[in-house]
Design a protein around this nucleic acid. Structure first.
Length: 260
DNA sequence: CCGGATGTTCACCT
DNA sequence: GAGGTGAACATCCG
């Protein structure tokens, strides 16, 4: 499920792990350990430590330890987080909600008997130590209007592709970007550098408002456009048949009438 | 049965 | 350098 909103909900859940001594680590899937990390290494550096802060940048969750490295967790498309057996209140969008223990690709056990686990059926996520946070652009939830203007300026890439480029702006995924551009009345395929100043400001305003609103609703999939995001969908604003295209390599729904 | 799907990385094109 | 495409991961759904 994860886009910025889901990862933020996971981060809040992960705050429950703070200050609890780590007794053991389970990394049964070496594919899930990135950048050459081994199960022994991650165990060695985490056992005996405690997480002291749960941070997030874009879709990357960061757990700082007391004296050791920072644990970086990515959730891919199907990764989730459980702490002491509890998930966040978000609905399962993939699957029937069943939880196969074999999907726990990485777990941290605390000395109080509790556990933080990362179930990920498709194994698209992963963990690493001390991830390079600066490879990510500013977080979309707090980005300023000037930064949005600058990241669009001079680019021939489609607006949607630019907004989803995690190196330039961190956190937006396919669903959120479609929702934001739909609310902004902007065509996803327009060259990013071609926006007027007023359009860029409008985009920034809807970007911030959409993230705040959908976070309050509880997920990236709870946008106004979402239920019409299918082949015969119609624009919730004006009833026009939605366009379905590939933009920036991703399936994109947009209203040909009011998104220009 | 087949095609796609809330993501990222990488190789390979133009 | 800038963009674009396709593959890979594994499961579920229409």
């Amino acid at each position: 499920m994860p886009e910025l909103i889901e990862v933020e909900l996971y981060r809040r859940l992960a705050e429950r792990t703070l200050d609890r001594p780590i007794a053991a680590v389970a990394a049964p899937d070496s594919w899930f350990l990135k950048r050459g990390l081994t199960g022994n290494q991650v165990t060695d550096v985490l056992v005996g430590e405690r997480f002291v802060a749960a941070r997030r940048r874009g879709k990357l969750m960061l757990l700082d330890t007391d004296r050791g490295p920072t644990l970086g967790v990515r959730f891919g498309m199907t990764g989730r987080l459980t702490v002491d057996g509890q998930a966040t209140i978000d609905r399962l969008e993939y699957g029937s909600g069943r939880h196969d223990p074999a999907w726990d690709r990485f777990s941290v056990h605390f000395d109080d008997g509790g556990t933080m686990a990362v179930p990920d059926p498709r194994r698209l996520g992963g963990v690493e130590l001390d991830p390079d946070e600066d490879r990510l652009g500013p977080d979309a939830a707090t980005v300023g209007a000037a930064a949005v203007r600058d990241l669009l300026a001079g680019s021939a890439a489609p607006l949607k592709a630019r907004l989803m480029d995690q190196h330039r702006l961190a956190g937006l995924g396919n669903l959120l970007t479609d929702e934001i551009l739909w609310r902004s009345g902007l065509d996803p395929a327009r060259p990013a550098g071609g926006l007027e100043a007023a359009e860029a400001r409008r985009l920034h305003r809807h970007l911030r408002a959409t993230l705040a609103e959908l976070t309050a609703r509880g997920g990236s999939h709870l946008g106004d456009l979402q239920e019409e995001r299918h082949r015969t969908g119609r624009c919730p604003r004006d009833g026009t048949a939605l366009d379905r295209r590939q933009v920036g390599g991703r399936t994109t729904y947009s209203c040909p009438a009011h998104q220009r």
